[in-house]
Design a protein around this nucleic acid. Sequence first.
DNA 1: GCTTGCCTTGACGTCGGCGTCAAGGCTTAC
DNA 2: GTAAGCCTTGACGCCGACGTCAAGGCAAGC
Lengths: 128, 128
Amino acid sequence: MRIGELAARAGTTTRTLRYYESRGLLPARRGDNGHRTYDESDLTLLRQIRTLQDFGFDLEETRPFVECLRAGHPAGDTCPASIAVYRRKLAELDELIGQLQAVRAEIGVRLAGAGGEPPLCELGGQQL
Amino acid sequence: MRIGELAARAGTTTRTLRYYESRGLLPARRGDNGHRTYDESDLTLLRQIRTLQDFGFDLEETRPFVECLRAGHPAGDTCPASIAVYRRKLAELDELIGQLQAVRAEIGVRLAGAGGEPPLCELGGQQL
DNA sequence: GCTTGCCTTGACGTCGGCGTCAAGGCTTAC
DNA sequence: GTAAGCCTTGACGCCGACGTCAAGGCAAGC
C-alpha cells in the first residue's frame, strides 16, 4: 500500500502522513523506487492516532499509544504510559471544563445585567 | 501618559499596546516627539479588552465592546453588537463544553476498560 | 512518444497574539 | 559630555499541525 491509498483509507492526506513520519510517529518502509510502503498494521496505528487527535490529544500524546500497539498489544491504551496519558488528559479536561463553565456563568451574569433578555428563565439557571 | 506607563498600569506590555494599535483597536494620539500619548479613558478601554481576553474572546470579538465605550456608554457591554457577541460566545461555550464533556466521558470509559483503577467509584459517575 | 497520475524532497504560508532583537532618537540626571 | 532610560519603526521568531506550491522522477496506458 502506498501513501495515497493509506491516506484515503484513513480519511486523511499524504501531507499528514509525511508529517507524522517526520515526527518519528509513523515511519514507513521504502520500495525500490523510493516510494513509501505501508501495510494493514500501519492503518491500525494511523487510526489510533486520528482517534486520539479527534479527542484533542496533541501528537506527542499519541506516541505512547502508537508504541503500545507497535509492541504487539491488541489495543494501544493497555500500556502504563498510555494510561498515564489518559489520566493526565482527564485532569486537564476537568480543569478546562471547570474554567469554561466559570466563564460561561460570568458571561451569563453580564448578559443579564446588560439588558439582554434572559434565555429561558431569570432564576439564575445557567448550568441547565 | 506614555505607552510604558499605560502598559504597567494595565499589567501588560508595550508590545501588546502597539499590537492593539496596529489592529486598529486602541489608536493613540502622538506628542510632539512622536511618542504615543494616552489618557485615563484609554486605560478603561484597555481594561475592557484584557478582561474579555481573559474570558477567551479573541481580539476581534472585543472590538464592539471597545467601540461601545468609545461611543460614550458607561459600560462596553450595553450596546447591541456587544450583546450579540455575548450571545454568540455563550452558544460557543455551551457547544465546546458539551464536546469536552463527551470526550471526558469517552476517555473515562476507555480508561476503565484499559485496566486503570476507577478514580472514586465504578458506578459511572463521570460528571461529578 | 506522450500524457496522466502517482510519487519524491524542500521550502514557504497559515493562524493569533504577541516576544524579542536591531538600530536609532530624545530627554533627563549627573 | 555622556550614560540611563524612555521612546520609535521594522522585522523576524514562536507554537502546532499541517496546506500549498515548486521542480522533478517513475510507471502505465494510449
